[in-house]
């Protein structure tokens, strides 16, 4: 109960701080952010773009973990948990792609330039889409759960390549790529103290929000199934 109110206040604070705090050359007050070269006024997107990208990977990881659990124990509740995670995952993936494209327009000039990291978030979107397409084409419950679990595991094997390896070895525009000398504002700590604080608060708030939504999601699925089974049994 209390943590939900805490989450509400936290995410409200993050929205206020992330959107309205001014970015000035030499920050003097606690509510001012420093100017980062190359980003300038657009830096505020970082508070929303990075958490969505982070959550889409977390959601995919959870979906795969519960898929593995389903294959081990054959408990359909695990399949419901995997499905709820994937639903949130695809939403956050779309949000990450859109926020990334908007940021790209300001920072690099065009919405899409097939930069390795943009390509990899798009590949993740394709994986999610394929997973849902596979699920909708199978009627039987156990078969659907088994086959989508197998596909989820195979697809997860390609994710480390997309998220960690490819963007770092190939040349690209996104921070952290092979020819990026300053390695981005997070790793190099170009953000000053209070900017880092807002950033980590944002990450925490979104993660708590995700777990809450996932909890509600899989419970709805399990109860909907149970109620359906009771009413059809007569």
């Amino acid at each position: 109960m209390a943590w939900k109110i805490f989450l509400f206040l936290l995410l409200s604070f993050v929205s206020v701080a992330g959107i309205a705090f001014p970015i000035v050359e030499n920050p003097t007050h606690w509510y001012e952010f420093p100017l980062i070269k190359g980003l300038e006024q657009n830096a505020k997107i970082i508070f929303f773009h990075v958490p969505t990208a982070w959550l889409t990977v977390v959601a995919f990881l959870m979906s795969t973990i519960f898929s593995i659990r389903y294959l081990a124990r054959k408990n359909l509740n695990d399949d419901a948990k995997s499905y709820a995670a994937a639903q949130l995952g695809i939403i956050f993936c779309i949000l990450a792609t859109i926020t990334g494209a908007v940021w790209a327009k300001f920072a690099w000039g065009s919405y899409w330039s097939w930069d390795p990291r943009q390509t990899s978030i798009f590949a993740l979107l394709l994986i999610y889409g394929a997973w849902f397409a596979l699920r909708s084409s199978i009627e039987s419950e156990e078969k659907r759960a088994t086959l989508s679990a197998v596909y989820s595991i195979i697809a997860f094997l390609t994710v480390p390549f997309f998220i960690f390896i490819m963007p770092r070895i190939m040349k690209g525009l996104h921070p952290g790529s092979a020819d990026d000398t300053n390695a981005g504002p997070i790793v190099n700590f170009k953000m000053n103290g209070n900017m880092q604080l807002i950033f980590f608060l944002s990450l925490t708030a979104f993660t708590i929000l995700y777990f809450w939504m996932w909890n509600l999601g899989y419970k709805s699925l399990i109860f909907k199934d149970k109620i359906n089974k009771i009413y059809t049994k007569g």
């Binding site: 989450l7 509400f8 995410l11 206020v16 959107i19 809450w212 939504m213 419970k219 709805s220």
Partner: peptide, 27 residues
């Protein structure tokens, strides 16, 4: 303009929050 954006975001977030809270109660 930036403050208008912030107010709209807060309104949207409050709406989402109360929806989730309601859902939680019903479940």
């Amino acid at each position: 303009a930036i403050y208008i954006v912030m107010i709209i975001v807060l309104i949207v977030w409050t709406g989402i929050f109360f929806y989730l809270f309601n859902l939680d109660k019903r479940i």
